[in-house]
Write a protein that binds this DNA or RNA. Sequence first.
DNA 1: CACATAAGTGCTTTATAACACACCTTTGTT
DNA 2: AACAAAGGTGTGTTATAAAGCACTTATGTG
Lengths: 72, 72
Amino acid sequence: MHFDELVKTIKERRDTLQVTQETLAQLSGVGLRTLKQFESGRGNPTLQTMQKIADVLGLEVSLKLKSMPGNK
Amino acid sequence: MHFDELVKTIKERRDTLQVTQETLAQLSGVGLRTLKQFESGRGNPTLQTMQKIADVLGLEVSLKLKSMPGNK
DNA sequence: CACATAAGTGCTTTATAACACACCTTTGTT
DNA sequence: AACAAAGGTGTGTTATAAAGCACTTATGTG
């Protein structure tokens, strides 16, 4: 997943759960400014920040093998 | 995946591909010190850094739904 | 339109990731 | 043991993520 996809996933998940940025910020312990920055696609969050946000949304950061051409 | 698992995944993948930290650093454009720090479990890399490293190893950073109890 | 609620932005400070350099430790080989 | 190759660490500098605050856009509701 590229950066934009990660952002999109977070946003969509937050929308699905009907949580505002403000609430998510509080629940995750991540600053509201940081969350806004990230969701507007202008961030480069640390792994910890990503994990805190993902966690609250029932998501997790993982590493998976890239699908190769023909390995699809 | 928790932090330690992410680290382990990167390390194992690098071992599998028989790439040294030095080579991986060069190929990914990530500083050797940063890579060492990360692999020794003492880092908090930015998403970009993670992606650069993962990329070279044929891995990608992704977000997946956490498995819930009973959703296993 | 007026109002409320949520999301996005400019500015600033503080904490820390990224980095290079030099050095130490571990591991394996002869 | 001597040596080589890879991994790990201490220190200092620079770049930037994290954060709060105030303000500006949307977006929706009466």
